[in-house]
Design a protein around this nucleic acid. Structure first.
Length: 895
DNA sequence: CGTGTATCGTCAC
DNA sequence: CGATACACG
């Protein structure tokens, strides 16, 4: 449901952004959206009980897409049902069953098309399906979490504590949960999202909107949302968003509004409405979420002093931290709290992992992996670790005695932090591990890389900690469960952790925070509009990269950050150096490090420490849940007081978690299979990177360049000393071939289009030459795929645009460009139209949307992107962006 | 005019 | 779940 009408009402502050504009950010994603859409690709199979995991592909394609744009996704799944939400589910279930039966009947009649429609309506996204995606996310080192209850609150929490910079969802509720930066309407065809920022709320005023938010506090905004009807409470009949807004402007508080309504008697206020209102409010504020730092359930915002057990029950009860963690990692079914049942064990069964675990050296046997001599060597000592487990923080020298071997999982005794005997508590083991790490860090100059940590070492973390000092989880190379404990123990080094965060975290650890300290939500006093607009105090440092990017989206620095470093083609080299670039030494190694796939992966690896439970033979999914799974209240309480109750020797799971925790930091990503040549000192062909997204809005002042990670296998060149997945490379080769073919087609098609549709007006000569030159050079391609610059034909030279195909699909009819829709090619089928537009329409048109929002996306040196993001200034519409940014719907490019 | 309700599409071959 | 269209008061 969300808040009916909220999104349309916020139109004035909806800002369409390209993914490139979000480069560098970490964005939490509501997994439900992707899963649910992905289900449409295989609804029939699912309905008929046929085993499929195709729904995973949809989500993973999007993950890859985000990563391509240097956006690090943090996938959040829905958890168990919140007590506050009842009733709706049974009704839906009934409808689903109806559709299932109907669909089956239609199948029997052979009416497959209609059957599919029914199947589409009967599929529910189950935790087991989510788990399939989780397995894939683990395999690729993507951060994820399963919320204990609703993903919405979890998403909001991740943003609140600074683990992510924004939320990608379709649910307007996120704004009510207090999120600052929410992205809607992810458009994978045009690489755009619609951004709504809380700080812009003050700009939501009549007549531009139906509602008037200027001068409002979060409390009032939330009140409006609840009064207008939300998931937790239907509205008083006759009260919609606008009425709620007006009433609140008049009476200030929800109580006053409700009392007025009751007094007035015109509307039928249900008995107990006000009380229910308060419960709903609590759900938005204090719903239980999982804190990945503290590894336990916490309220989204600290609970007030008058918190009652009733509220607690309503907003989601606590869980034993160990259970909460397993739930968050996806290892237990959030509905039953029983170990997750893997409905597709054959899908990413750990087959790779398992094979690697048992045969670390020969898992490339089927041509799956390419290994250099070096790699084989390291595999013999830690091949599996290079694959998904080694800890780079512990240099070989010191960690040898305790370094987990490939057989570690099979021989738990070898595992430990040096002492394997006795019943050490998990916390003790971790502490020992921590101190060892710390010692090691002191020994090694922070910036000095060992041979191993050159790839997976600390620089990324250092970098991150420098640039994001407010993110405690990044503070010192230690990732995972041990970090927060370490910080707590040492009381958090001043200067390393923001005072607010420190106090907040430690107080959260106590389970309660006085309202005085609750800087974020409950202090909300009426504030002046100015303050409302920009006086928000973010837990992120103002100088963090994300903040910078956030406030400075149009600056050349940020506009170009996602593109490869190409100072040679830059009019001003300095623009191509991110302010927060790493030290030159590392840059030599990695090229543009912060946006390189390796660095992204490393960052990700170091930040996430999800246990790789699937890989372990010591499997907890053996039917009998560990004793700690008990939800006994006493136990829960004691366990939440201290983790030391978890005995390593008693719980294989805990033990394994430890193993994996201590090793996961080095889990060098499998996805190093992207282009590592730069990183490895292998010369990159001069222009090969032009092969990237033809139509990617690069936003740089350079010609459309490619992306640094453009995956190209270079035959004969030195093999990178990392595991490279040959399958992926082969796939890229195929893709390259396809791209070349596409270019040939495009050239032909383009010609035809020019003749058929182009204005007779002259094509700018310089462009034409450039284009033909590039076309020529593309025909000269040898083994290496070179993507030419797009031909110089611009849309301004034609009167048929990509929008045409949209007109064929669902006609939205409100395109800003009426001319765009005038001539959908009536002579072509919708299908061929689409194909043509994909292959051929990579030309660009400078287009003035607004005076201050001129957007040029293109292939010539003087093209540029200037995108204003002022909340007050007129913003581009979705349709405008769609027209501005040509489309290549080739998701395979993101793999 | 605003609210309430019903219907549709979501993917992707 | 949102977008949309439309009927109702």
């Amino acid at each position: 449901m969300g808040i009916t009408g909220l999104l349309p009402a916020l139109k004035p502050i909806q800002n369409t952004k390209t993914l490139a504009e979000l480069s560098g950010k970490t964005i939490a994603v509501d997994a439900y959206v992707w899963l649910h859409k992905g289900v449409y690709s295989c609804a029939t199979d699912l309905a008929l009980g046929k085993s499929t995991t195709r729904y995973v592909n949809y989500a993973m394609d999007r993950v890859h897409m985000l990563r391509h744009f240097k956006i690090e996704p943090y996938i959040v799944f829905d958890g168990g049902p919140l007590p506050a939400k009842k009733g709706t589910e049974s009704e839906r279930k009934k409808k689903r069953e109806e559709n299932l039966a109907k669909g089956k009947a239609l199948v029997a009649q052979g009416r497959h098309t209609q059957a599919r429609d029914c199947f589409n309506k009967c599929i529910d996204v189950t935790p087991q399906m989510a788990y399939q995606l989780i397995k894939k996310l683990r395999a690729e080192g993507v951060q994820y979490l399963v919320a204990p209850y609703e993903a919405d609150a979890q998403l909001a929490y991740l943003e609140r504590i600074g683990l992510v910079d924004g939320i990608l969802t379709e649910d307007s509720d996120l704004l009510v949960f207090g999120c600052k930066s929410v992205f809607f309407k992810f458009d994978s065809t045009n690489y755009t999202v619609v951004s709504i920022e809380r700080k812009d709320f003050a700009s939501v005023v009549p007549p531009r909107s139906d509602i008037h938010l200027a001068g409002w506090t979060d409390v009032q905004f939330r009140s409006m949302a609840i009064l207008s009807g939300c998931d937790y409470l239907p509205s008083i009949p006759g009260i919609g968003l606008k009425t709620a807004c007006n009433l609140l402007r008049k009476y200030k508080t929800a109580e006053a509004v409700v009392k007025h309504l009751i007094f007035e008697g015109k509307k039928k206020v249900p008995p107990g409405y006000l009380e229910q209102y308060h419960f709903a409010e609590k759900c938005f504020q204090h719903q239980k979420v999982y804190c990945p730092l503290q590894e336990k359930l916490v309220p989204l915002y600290p609970v007030p002093a008058d918190w009652t057990q009733e509220y607690e029950d309503y907003c989601g009860g606590d869980l034993d931290p160990a259970l909460a963690k397993k739930l968050a990692m996806g290892d237990v079914d959030p509905h039953t709290l029983l170990p997750m049942n893997d409905i597709n064990p054959g899908f990413l069964p750990g087959s790779k992992k398992h094979a690697a675990a048992t045969k670390p050296v020969s898992h490339k046997g089927k041509g799956k992996q390419v290994q250099t001599t070096k790699e084989v060597k390291s595999a013999s000592t830690g091949g599996i670790l290079n694959f998904f487990g080694a800890n780079p923080i512990i240099p070989p020298s010191s960690s040898k005695p305790s370094k987990p071997s490939p057989l570690t999982v099979k021989q738990p005794r070898v595992v430990s932090a040096g002492q394997a005997s006795g019943k050490r508590t998990l916390a003790e083991v971790m502490d020992s591990d921590i101190s060892r790490k710390k010692q090691k860090q002191r020994q090694n100059s922070p910036m000095k890389a060992t041979a191993q940590s050159r790839f997976f070492g600390q620089q990324g973390v250092r970098q991150r900690s420098v640039s994001l000092p407010m993110q405690p989880h990044d503070l010192d190379g230690a990732a995972g469960p041990s970090r927060i404990r370490e910080q707590e123990k040492e009381n958090i080094v001043p200067g390393d952790v923001d005072e607010y965060d420190a106090s907040d975290l430690s107080m959260c650890a106590q389970g309660r925070l006085d309202s005085e300290v609750d800087l974020d939500f409950d202090h909300e006093l009426p504030v002046a509009e100015v303050e409302q607009e920009d006086g928000y105090m973010s837990p992120l440092a103002p100088f963090s990269p994300s903040r910078d990017a956030h406030h400075d989206l149009s600056s050349p620095v940020h506009r170009t950050r996602s593109t490869p470093r190409r100072s040679e083609s830059s009019p001003n080299g300095q623009f191509f150096r991110p302010r927060y670039q790493r030290d030159p030494e590392e840059e030599d190694d990695f090229g543009e490090v912060f946006s390189s796939p390796t660095s992204a992966n490393r960052r990700n690896r170091l930040r996430s420490c999800s246990p790789r439970c699937l890989s372990s033979p010591v499997h907890h999914r053996d039917g009998t849940p560990p004793p700690i799974l008990s939800m006994d209240v006493q136990q829960r309480q004691s366990a939440s007081l201290t983790m030391e109750r978890v005995l390593v020797a008693d719980t294989p799971v805990a033990k394994r978690l430890f193993v994996e925790t201590t090793t996961c930091e080095a889990s060098t990503s499998r996805r190093v299979s992207l282009d590592l040549r730069g990183s490895l000192g292998i010369p990159r062909p001069e222009q090969d990177d032009a092969e990237g997204y033809l139509e990617e809005p690069s936003g740089s002042t350079t010609p459309p360049t490619s992306t640094p990670e453009t995956p190209i296998h270079v035959p004969g060149s030195q093999e990178p000393s990392v595991v490279i997945d040959v399958d992926e490379l082969d796939m890229f080769d195929i893709e390259e071939q396809m791209l070349r073919d596409a270019h040939a087609r495009r050239d032909a098609v383009m010609k035809g289009w020019r003749e058929k549709w182009a204005h007779k007006g002259p094509i700018p000569k310089s462009k034409a030459t450039t284009g033909s030159k590039n076309i020529q050079s593309s025909s000269k391609l040898k083994g290496k795929a070179k993507m030419t610059n797009p031909p110089a034909l611009k849309r301004s030279h034609t009167n048929v645009t990509p929008a045409g195909r949209f007109a064929l699909g669902k006609s939205k009819g409100n395109s800003a460009n009426s001319s765009d829709q005038k001539k959908p090619s009536s002579t072509r089928s919708a299908k061929s139209e689409k194909r043509v537009s994909m292959a051929a329409l990579n030309f660009f048109q400078p287009k003035k949307v607004e005076q201050r929002h001129t957007i040029f996306v293109g292939d010539s040196d003087d093209d540029e992107i200037v995108v204003g993001s002022s909340p007050v200034a007129p913003t581009r519409t979705h349709h405008q962006i769609r027209d501005e940014v040509p489309t290549v719907n080739n998701l395979a490019r993101f793999r």
